[in-house]
């Protein structure tokens, strides 16, 4: 005879009676409980979301894939790095992530093809996964619009351990009228691969956030590719026409449909 063993109760506790309220929000409500703890399935779901976010922070640009994605545009591509040598350094020293390392500076100075209207920078930021997932589909819509409108595009720059402001130094070295940075945003639990697009007119080192405009949360579950491309095209055209970016252009972007 085996002794009576206790049942692990409740093995899989039910959600709370108000689970119907979940229809109104993506927040983790009506989770149920086991003692004071969340049920195991909810605990693991949270851990998985955090794992995706952590993996995104340490992800790297899939250069091969990106080069293949961009081949159709027939633009020269170059690769640069910031002064942050590692991800750990990058996370602790945002100032280093805003400056090119010496070989990259040299490379861009040598490659400078003459004046261009827009230089495009693909930066890993806090989620290279965002670039890997969304830069290709977004640019397949955006670049033809820009080319069709007659803008002269500079080379495409892939930047590693990069902060947004690194684009200003790159834009200046490549003598671009405008620098557009696509960058992986800080991952949230429900959005490990959200893409942000920032641009500055007359880019140069030392500019701050008020000189920039931003279109954020670009991903199919957020701002979709088509809407994002249209919005960016409109804003970039206006920035080049009005010869400004930042606060002065902000009111304009508020008029756009989201």
């Amino acid at each position: 005879m085996t002794p009576d063993l206790p049942n692990p109760t409740p093995a899989n506790p039910e959600a709370d009676p108000w689970a119907g309220l979940r229809a109104f929000t993506a927040a983790r409500i009506a989770l149920g409980r086991n003692g004071t703890s969340v049920p195991l399935r909810e605990a693991l779901a949270f851990k998985l979301a955090h794992a995706h976010a952590r993996d995104a922070v340490y992800s790297t640009l899939n250069t091969e894939q990106l080069l293949a994605d961009l081949a159709a545009q027939q633009l020269p591509v170059c690769q640069v790095r910031s002064q942050a040598p590692t991800r750990e350094a990058y996370l602790q020293r945002p100032d280093h992530g805003r400056q090119l390392d010496e070989p990259s500076k040299k490379l861009l100075a040598e490659q400078a093809p003459g004046d261009c209207d827009i230089v495009l920078i693909l930066a890993d930021g806090l989620s290279a996964t965002a670039i890997n997932d969304h830069a290709g589909p977004l640019l397949r819509l955006l670049l033809p619009q820009l080319q069709h409108a007659g803008f002269r595009l500079g080379p495409i720059v892939l930047a590693e351990h990069a902060r947004v402001a690194l684009g200003d130094e790159i834009g200046q070295l490549l003598r671009a009228r405008l620098a557009l940075v696509l960058i992986g945003e800080r991952p949230g639990l429900s959005s490990p691969n959200s893409l942000g697009a920032y641009f500055t007119y007359a880019p140069r080192p030392g500019l701050t956030d008020e000189a920039r405009n931003c279109v954020s949360n670009i991903r199919p579950e957020g701002l979709g590719y088509e809407l994002a491309a249209d919005k960016l095209f409109f804003l970039l055209r206006e920035a080049l026409r009005l010869q400004l970016s930042g606060v002065g252009l902000k009111d304009l972007s508020d008029l756009l449909p989201v």
Partner: peptide, 25 residues
């Protein structure tokens, strides 16, 4: 006290309603 410790607006993690129950207990 944030549902499941996951603030879906500010995109950060804090303490949940459950966490408060735990520490009180």
């Amino acid at each position: 006290g944030i549902p499941g410790a996951d603030d879906i607006m500010l995109n950060y993690q804090s303490t949940s309603f459950h966490d408060a129950l735990y520490v009180r207990q």
